Amino acid sequence: MRIFQQLITSKAQIEALSLTFVPDVIFLFASLKFEDIDKALTSIQQKYTQAIIIGGTTAGEIIDQQVIDDSIVLSAVKFNGTKVKLYGKDLPTDVSQYFEVGNKFVQDIDQEDLKHIFLISDVQTLHASNLLKGINHKLKSHISVTGGLAGRESYIGSNYIIDLGSLKRNRVIALAMYGDRLQVNYNAQGGWDSYGVECLVTKSEKNQILEIDGLPALDFYKSVVEPNILSDVKQLGFKHPIKVRNKDHSNPVIRALLDIDESNKSLIMAEEIPAGSYVRIMKANVDRLILGAENAAKTIAQQNKHEHELAILISCSGRRKVLGKLAKEEVEAVVQQFPSTTKSIGFYSYGEISPFFEKPKTSLHNLTMCVTTFSEL
């Protein structure tokens, strides 16, 4: 596997790009604030017409041990024996169809000798879970799926995927990777501290938790978290997400609190959380968050003997908000678990896609660091 990486902060750097090989794939994670972003992506596509160019917009870019804003990070890959093919599907406006869309999307993908799928979409977190459930439903159990949801710098505006070098919306794309030479490892960890006991969701409606242990959900939440969190939930609610355990999740997953509704005393979550789920309020501990990210990578690095040639790091925009200037330490903690020869690239997302370590079924995560490594035998 041959890899070329570049941090791009100006259009002049795009003009100066010069690869010594013809890449199979170019991963691009880009800020919407990059000058003339559409033209910049078109320029890259025109320079490397034979490559599959994919990625998405971000809430911050990652390259090596750096966290950057307003840039494009590029990783061009030439495989030695792995075959790749890109699949894509437009998403309907009717979000109730997303499970079926995921189901049909997988049926379009050739699964013979398929080893891994790297998935990118701009779908909202709330509906991405159903899309993934549809994908899992028809995907062979040994095929792993990792990836993420495109982000943006603020909640105002749109996020986009990069599909063959162009910005697109309302779409899901899958880079299918084939062959026995490809080695893929992945892990997902959060590092959040528990804050109270596990309780039962006794009433919910879509992504609103209405009652917990028979009490109004908002009253329950208020009884646990510090009062200032409720003054600005959209900005501070990330500090107290909710861990969810139910039949859909063999391992508990973290879910972000998006808002509250005082009228019905509900918690508005990033995903539908059905009645019968068990939930526990969590709290941010910066050291533990960084350690969680480090452990996600360490588990991969310690239990696999082969080289990790490329690492893709996808972390949540909410984690970056909580970590602030220490976000760079999260990335450093991950990258330092791998050999110095490992190339690392990634972005801050609106949702992370990964199975847990050595688990076959992929999950949608919030507020989690997900690491995927690639190498060839």
Rank of each mutant, 00 (worst) to 15 (best):
G165V: 06
K305L: 10
D108S: 15
K85V: 11
F34S: 02
F4H: 15
T146D: 00
S263Q: 14
F99A: 09
D113E: 15
I52Y: 05
A297T: 08
E329A: 10
Y87D: 07
E211D: 10
G318L: 01
E272K: 11
D110L: 02
T49M: 08
S315N: 13
L17K: 06
I156H: 11
S223L: 03
I162H: 03
H365G: 04
G318S: 08
F220H: 15
S141L: 08
G165I: 05
R152K: 14
I345H: 03
L126W: 09
E272D: 13
V123Q: 10
L377Y: 12
Q46G: 01
R152S: 15
A327T: 15
S263D: 13
K206D: 14
E35W: 06
G102S: 07
E61C: 02
K39T: 11
L126E: 14
F118N: 10
E329T: 12
A76C: 08
G351R: 02
Y48R: 10
G56D: 03
V322Y: 05
V253S: 02
I161T: 14
I8F: 01
V184P: 03
Q97T: 11
A76Q: 09
I229E: 02
F374T: 06
E198L: 05
K361D: 09
Y350V: 02
V197E: 14
P92R: 07
E330Q: 06
D94T: 12
M1S: 12
D70A: 12
T58W: 05
V84T: 15
Q208Y: 11
A174N: 03
V224Q: 03
F118T: 12
K234D: 02
D219Q: 11
I52W: 01
K243A: 14
Y278N: 12
I161A: 00
I54R: 00
L323D: 06
D69L: 11
G346C: 04
D248Q: 10
K104I: 09
R171C: 01
E272R: 09
S18R: 13
N136C: 06
S158E: 14
Q50A: 12
Q124N: 14
H127T: 11
A174P: 06
K47C: 06
I314A: 06
V279T: 07
A301G: 01
R152A: 14
T202Q: 03
L291W: 09
S121G: 03
Q66F: 10
L323W: 07
S154M: 03
I300S: 00
G148I: 06
S144D: 01
V322C: 05
E294W: 01
L377K: 14
H142S: 12
I173D: 03
T82G: 05
Q97L: 12
Q303N: 15
Q208R: 15
I173P: 02
G214I: 08
S10G: 00
L114R: 08
P360D: 11
E294T: 11
D259H: 08
S10C: 03
N264F: 00
Y48A: 09
S317P: 00
E309M: 07
I229R: 00
L74P: 09
L323V: 09
L119Y: 10
A40V: 04
N136Q: 12
L86V: 07
V25D: 01
K11I: 09
I161D: 00
R2H: 13
G351S: 05
S354T: 07
K11Y: 08
